[in-house]
């Protein structure tokens, strides 16, 4: 439990022509079974950090610093070796669901193919696994299995792509704004399933989001990012009620309160 699944040390991402750094001095670590939240506005470098871990940075950017995944330094690996970690070890769920599937191959075929690339199992077994994960996402599994991506709604495609990632049982799941495209009910369903998977396989999760309520409720530790740097980190309660940095304060003040929730704000005022 004590050894982190992934630890990022002093990550710095800059463009190749060497202007100012886009991400600077970012350090974070996630232990087994932990959910870390990375919050911040758009353009703060949240997604770039995730892409550096995946080795999927745009060609005109380079990273320095260390990204240690289970004792191996990912940033020192060649792109080819780095790729071997993707999928089975590190899974990523993107915000843009339209790019997750090839449009002219049925979803079921794409999921079974993905499973069989990483695990040596037969077609039938892979099919059963695929149907199972699709069902767990609250989808009509038989129908989705035989559908092309364009025959489904956006929310359904997003859930199918999440099912595909989780079917491989990765040790680290990176969720890049995964519920933004879903409506509240489906978002909850997907998050509950993610929670279930985490309990079952003990995977670590990096949750990139700008939904503060989600971060408060679902994560074990929150990192606040502003303009490429982590300005504050702590337990969700600390970030919510005892934040120190002015930017965190500004961000937290933006969470509108539900009626009857005002006592939290009063508490916050007392703390300041």
């Amino acid at each position: 439990m004590s050894n982190p699944i992934i630890s990022i040390e002093k990550l710095k991402i800059e463009t190749r022509n060497g202007s100012y750094p886009l991400v600077n001095n970012v350090s974070l670590e996630i232990k087994k079974g932990e959910i870390a939240g990375l919050i911040g506005e758009s353009g703060s470098g949240k997604s770039l950090t995730a892409r550096a871990v995946m080795g999927l940075l745009p060609v005109n950017m380079k990273n320095s610093g260390r990204i240690v995944y289970k004792n191996s330094d990912l940033s020192a690996l060649s792109p080819k070796d780095h790729r071997k970690f993707l999928g089975k070890e590190i899974g990523i769920i993107f915000q843009d669901y339209r790019a997750s599937f090839t449009p002219y191959i049925k979803i079921g075929k794409q999921i079974t193919e993905t499973i069989r690339t990483h695990y040596p199992i037969g077609k039938k077994e892979a099919r059963n696994q695929a149907l199972e994960v699709l069902g767990k996402m609250g989808l009509d599994s038989e129908r989705v299995y035989c559908s092309y991506p364009f025959q489904l709604s956006g929310g359904q495609v997003q859930r199918a792509s999440i099912a595909m990632v989780l079917a491989l049982k990765p040790a680290l799941v990176i969720c890049d704004e995964m519920t933004t495209a879903l409506d509240v009910m489906n978002g909850e369903k997907v998050l509950n399933y993610l929670e279930e998977v985490r309990k079952e396989t003990g995977c670590a999760i990096l949750m990139i989001t700008h939904d503060l309520a989600l971060a408060y409720k679902r994560t074990d530790r929150i990192y606040v990012m502003q303009q490429g740097e982590i300005v504050e980190e702590g337990l969700p309660e600390q970030i919510r009620c005892q934040h120190q940095h002015p930017y965190t304060k500004k961000l937290c003040a933006c969470l509108l309160s539900l009626p009857g929730e005002n006592f939290i704000i009063n508490e916050r005022v007392n703390d300041l």
Binding site: A213, L258, P259, G260, E261
Partner: peptide, 23 residues
């Protein structure tokens, strides 16, 4: 009305919305 938001006769969907948004 907004002051009846937490009333127990609310529709399950409303309750689920509040549940999902609360912290």
């Amino acid at each position: 009305g907004i002051n009846e938001l937490y009333h127990k006769s609310r529709h399950p969907y409303t309750k689920a919305l509040i549940e999902a948004a609360s912290i």
